[in-house]
């Protein structure tokens, strides 16, 4: 992958992640796959990038008083339990159907946010 395109993918992904606190990984996966990376490599690379961008953003959110990392960390065990259940569920349900359903939910809430 060309360095300039990789830099552009990184910049856009980082900016979105900092701006919305989420979504940087989606952008990175899309751009890396468009540049020819296979889906698994694109996902792994996007995850590594987003991890760094999230840490940077956490520092800024904390410095600006928008985040109390200690309080937020209290939610982590519940997320981990959910992830454990999710991995079990994955074997029993059609992921494609879930992804479609989730995309529709995203669009619904997105429209609500734009119009309210």
């Amino acid at each position: 992958m060309r360095k300039d395109k990789l830099s552009a993918a990184g910049f856009l992904s980082g900016a979105v992640n900092g701006l919305f606190g989420a979504g940087g990984g989606n952008i990175a996966v899309l751009m890396l796959e468009r540049e020819g990376a296979d889906p698994k490599t694109a996902h792994a690379s996007a995850l590594a990038l987003t991890l760094v961008f999230s840490i940077v953003s956490i520092f800024i959110y904390t410095a600006k008083g928008a985040l109390d990392p200690v309080n937020a960390a209290k939610l982590l065990p519940f997320g981990a339990m959910g992830a454990f259940v999710g991995t079990r569920l994955m074997k029993r349900i059609d992921p494609m159907m879930l992804v479609r359903l989730f995309a529709c939910v995203m669009i619904y809430f997105g429209i609500r946010m734009m119009t309210n």
């Binding site: 990789l6 830099s7 552009a8 910049f11 992904s13 980082g14 900092g18 996902h43 800024i60 959110y61």
Partner: peptide, 23 residues
């Protein structure tokens, strides 16, 4: 599945993007 060295340009520019985006 990922090579940190190859991702360096994306990491550098992305960090700048993350700072600007967050601010």
């Amino acid at each position: 599945l990922f090579q940190p060295k190859k991702l360096l340009p994306a990491l550098l520019f992305g960090t700048v993007g993350a700072i600007l985006g967050a601010l």
